[in-house]
Design a protein around this nucleic acid. Structure first.
Lengths: 142, 142
DNA sequence: ATACTTGCAAATCGTTTGCAATACC
DNA sequence: GGTATTGCAAACGATTTGCAAGTAT
């Protein structure tokens, strides 16, 4: 089942985003977006992704992981989620959706977009435009 | 208009919270909760509060500001708001409410509780209980 | 050939900690 | 007096940066 030219689609995706398909960006994109496994939504920190890369025998520096995550975010391939001061999560699900945050262990979990509905939203403050509405449901294991 | 025994109420408040009314806690409480000025909602970072203390000629170390902010938060006098990775805000408004976050300049602004209404909420994941629902509306100055 | 990327190590930022000195009850 | 609190400076963890070396087009 090992694909002989496995990266074609990812290369295209990076090029479209205006990013050179370098070895490290490809490898990270594979780890992030290649859903050979089941889940479509991943929430990774830079450290986590770096560890995964190491396990996968991919040599990438932590600095490059940071750079890449931000480039992917700027390119709209990822979304940054802030729930914990001092730790940034990157979400591979860029659709409109919200999150459960497990404060005990720092895990994030997607809430399907339809499960949260806002009945009423304030208008943006004068001189400002709404960029995104984020709902974070903080939960505690019991 | 300078009160001769200005701290009585704050002292009581700290005692009720189980905190010794020390000089530095009182001074910080005054800066945070004394609404001689207009606004009832303040969103401060530790650094900001420390600066204010310096300007007010109150000698407090930054470490103590951090300690105090967390103690106040644990005691329910403050609420911590996380919108920016790497920076913690403390909100003097502990009522149920949500926030606008101005990404350009890092300013936070309360949204009155009634202006956001959630029509539908998911139930908590199995084995977990909802601790708080936070709505953050990220806005951009234009 | 050239501009973009990478890796490394050092630097930075916000925050926390250990511990001796000090203040509150 | 005994315990809680403070300040300092060092330690910390996550993230960023400068720059020389490597790589994609």
């Amino acid at each position: 089942m090992t694909d002989v030219r496995p990266y074609t689609a990812l290369i295209e995706r990076l090029k479209l985003a205006g990013l050179r398909p370098t070895r490290q960006r490809l490898a990270l994109a594979k780890l992030l977006f290649d859903t050979a496994d089941d889940q479509t939504d991943r929430h990774v920190t830079a450290e986590q992704l770096h560890s995964e890369a190491m396990e996968a025998e991919v040599r990438v520096s932590l600095a490059t992981v940071y750079n890449t995550l931000h480039q992917f975010t700027d390119a709209g391939l990822l979304r940054e989620v802030v729930v914990d001061s001092g730790r940034s999560y990157f979400d591979t699900n860029i659709d409109d959706h919200h999150h459960f945050y497990f404060e005990d262990n720092g895990r994030l979990q997607d809430i399907p977009g339809a499960a949260v509905r806002l009945a009423e939203l304030p208008e943006a403050p004068a001189g400002a435009a709404i960029k995104r509405v984020e709902v974070i449901i903080r939960v505690r294991e019991d």
